[in-house]
Write a protein that binds this DNA or RNA. Structure first.
Length: 429
RNA sequence: GGAAGGGUGGCUGAGCGGUUGAAAGCACCAGUCUUGAAAACUGGCAAGGGUUUAUAGCCCUUCGUGGGUUCAAAUCCCACCUCUUCCGCCA
């Protein structure tokens, strides 16, 4: 969430900045609520102070053996007044909380203003889309025709088992999927300095509030235990970032660089009819995530660095891609700035998102009270959080299939993956 | 699933109705001593929030979480969460 002090002191400027994201902040409602909060809080604390001082004097009088009855009379009725004040204050604070938790992050000044994804700006491209002297197929055709009786990609069986937007992978395809995971983790841990972490795939609502999925986006999540408030993770970002929730890290612990492979579960509410074919948009997919927790002064350079870490994977796989910066209308709720990596898919003749790298400033850290102790001041300061996919496994698999396809439907194995595939050169259709 | 015992500040750990936001130790910071370091000694050292021009002062909240009892709760009661150990079951 945003700094409440900023909202108090500079409400109009905050509202102005939020317009870039098409977020309409109700300035009047907030202002009157804030005035009410102030009055209530001062009143409540006044009563609390009175109760504390009186109670103390009763204790002293009793210890001195004096008659405390007159003091007790004096304090009669105070409790009720206090309770009433408390109730009013918590009511006001709850109303404010609802508004505050629903306000998206402020954008970094470098974010281009725009309406939607069509206004995203290309930052750079890498590699050339290959030309093929045969008719290219998309990954669905390739996946369903390869593997013989046990299709490489089996959407039909998955829909029997569960429903739409799931996949069953057989044989070498399942192995290639696993190889991608191993490869990415190895690159990030060996070459980019991340520590691998294994985390729960079910998290509580506190964690989801911390990273910003709750309270606003509950319909995107799968709830596994309504009563306990437990959900399947939509991304490893949630458990990994929340490792630092309610913690004060030592200066020697940051930058804290973590990478994790997890499945991700998304209900994809609101995306009916979008990417219904194939593996692009699934309810369950795997992802290798990178998370960095850094001091505020390092946040923006860390975003650049982390984005390059994700790009390195695509480069090693020799997959053409482009990097775009999301425009103000397309940046996610919690992010201050986001780069998307879009890989070239010959089957679609289009660049498609394969990674999203974001800097959140202290927006998430404030929600989860994730801090570090600055040795210069010896005071705890909010961390800044940066994360990105490095990369989405399912979509990378799609990209490999489509980019490495041969005329006969077989798939060449990218050089860097061969050690993970037992040295084979290709998947024979 | 059954039984027992715990959850207190950065860490270890005392307190078990009243001047306790919390002893003591460790860690950390500053100083004295020392050529320097270590040791020893002296002092400081929780977080969040409100008020305020203020990182000054004052005030509030917080001893797992949420309720309750009381003039007063870390301390008593209830529920929940969680950890440890033992038994059972189990990948």
């Amino acid at each position: 969430m945003l700094d409440p002090k900023l909202i108090r002191s500079d409400l109009n400027s905050v509202a102005e900045q939020l317009k870039k994201r098409k977020f309409d902040l109700d300035v009047n409602a907030l202002e009157s609520l804030e005035a009410k909060r102030k009055a209530c809080q001062v009143e409540t604390e006044k009563f609390q102070n009175e109760r504390n001082t009186k109670s103390k004097s009763i204790g002293k009088a009793k210890a001195a053996g004096e008659d405390i009855q007159p003091l007790l009379d004096e304090v009669a009725g105070l409790g009720d007044k206090l309770d009433a004040a408390k109730a009013e204050l918590s009511d006001v604070q709850q109303q404010m909380d609802v508004i505050l938790m629903g306000i998206p992050n402020l954008l970094h000044e470098s974010v281009p203003v725009g309406q939607d994804e069509s206004d995203n700006v290309e930052v750079r491209t890498w590699g050339q889309p290959k030309t093929y002297d045969f008719e290219v197929k998309d990954h669905v055709t390739l996946g369903e025709s390869g593997g013989g009786a046990n299709k490489w990609l089996d959407f039909e069986t998955a829909s029997k088992l569960t429903g739409s937007r799931y996949v069953v992978m057989h044989g070498q395809m399942a192995k290639l999927h696993r190889a991608l995971i191993q490869f990415m983790l190895d690159v990030h841990t060996n070459e980019h300095g991340y520590t691998e972490v294994y985390v729960p795939y079910i998290v509580n609502s506190e964690s989801l509030r911390g990273t910003g999925q709750l309270p606003k986006f509950e319909e995107d999540l799968y709830c596994v235990d309504k009563e306990a408030g437990q959900y399947l993770i939509p991304t490893a970002e949630v458990p990994v970032t929340n490792i630092a929730r309610d913690a004060i890290l030592d200066a020697s612990q940051i930058p804290l660089k973590m990478t994790s492979h997890t499945p991700c579960f998304r209900s994809e509410a609101g995306s009916y009819g979008k990417d219904t074919r194939g593996m692009i948009r699934q309810h369950q997919f795997d992802k290798v995530e990178m998370v960095q927790l850094v001091s505020a002064d390092k946040a923006w350079e860390t975003l650049e660095e982390l984005t390059l870490h994700a790009e390195a994977i695509l480069q090693k796989l020799e997959l053409p891609y482009r990097t775009v910066i999301l425009c103000s209308g397309d940046v996610g709720f919690s992010a201050a700035k986001t780069y998307d990596l879009e890989v070239w898919l010959p089957g679609q003749q289009a660049y498609r998102e394969i990674s999203s790298c974001s800097c959140f400033g202290d927006f998430q850290a404030r929600r989860m009270q994730a801090r570090w102790r600055n040795p210069e001041t010896n005071k705890p300061e909010l961390l800044n959080t940066v994360n990105g996919s490095g990369l989405a496994i399912g979509r990378t698999l799609v990209a490999v299939l489509e980019n490495y396809q041969q005329a006969d439907g077989s798939i060449l194995i990218p050089e860097v993956l061969k050690p993970y595939m037992g040295g084979i050169d290709k998947l024979q259709a």
